[in-house]
């Protein structure tokens, strides 16, 4: 799993399938307002695409999308987007996570909540995607110095 595999079938299948899975993940994420889906499911699908690449073509060749070094920081960034939305609401006078107080004047409260939900789900997607990849990398020891 660490080095590139010998079999071309697996590599071609992984290379071909991973973008489709990730496209599906992005679709699920954006369709979360209207049907089953949302940040978490989309994030897991995006992570599944990357994990398929990690399994199929080897860890060192699949660093292009998400590097092992940056996963923890990106996961923190995703969670921080979520928390930051709430803190902005506090700064503009509302309660924590009250999207109606987000500083966008030309939208009414209901629409503001619509976009607030979308914004928060971006954070969830980033955090879940990179988080699952980070756990996988740690389990295999990919991020360790000297094994990379």
């Amino acid at each position: 799993m660490i080095s590139q595999t010998q079999s071309p079938i697996i590599e071609i299948a992984a290379r071909g399938l991973a973008p489709v899975i990730q496209l599906l993940g992005i679709y699920v994420f954006f369709h979360g307002h209207y049907g089953p889906g949302g940040g978490f499911q989309g994030g897991v699908l995006l992570a599944a695409g990357v994990l398929l690449l990690r399994l199929g073509i080897g860890a060192s060749h699949s660093q292009a999308q998400v590097t092992s070094k940056s996963t923890v920081a990106l996961c923190a960034l995703g969670a921080f987007i979520f928390a930051g939305t709430g803190l902005v609401a506090i700064l503009w006078g509302g309660d924590f996570m009250d999207y109606a107080y987000l500083p966008v004047q030309w939208l009414e409260a209901a629409d503001l909540r619509y976009y607030g939900i979308l914004f928060v789900e971006i954070g969830i997607t980033i955090a879940v995607m990179t988080g699952l990849i980070a756990i996988y990398d740690d389990l295999l020891g990919i991020g360790n110095a000297g094994n990379n």
Partner: peptide, 27 residues
């Protein structure tokens, strides 16, 4: 403002600090 929001700020600031630590550490 801080006193009025104290119940939310106490846990959230800890968690936000935990998120900032890896982000700063990356650089």
């Amino acid at each position: 403002m801080i006193t009025q929001n104290a119940p939310a700020l106490i846990p959230v600031l800890y968690l936000v600090a935990a998120m900032i630590i890896p982000m700063v550490d990356y650089f």
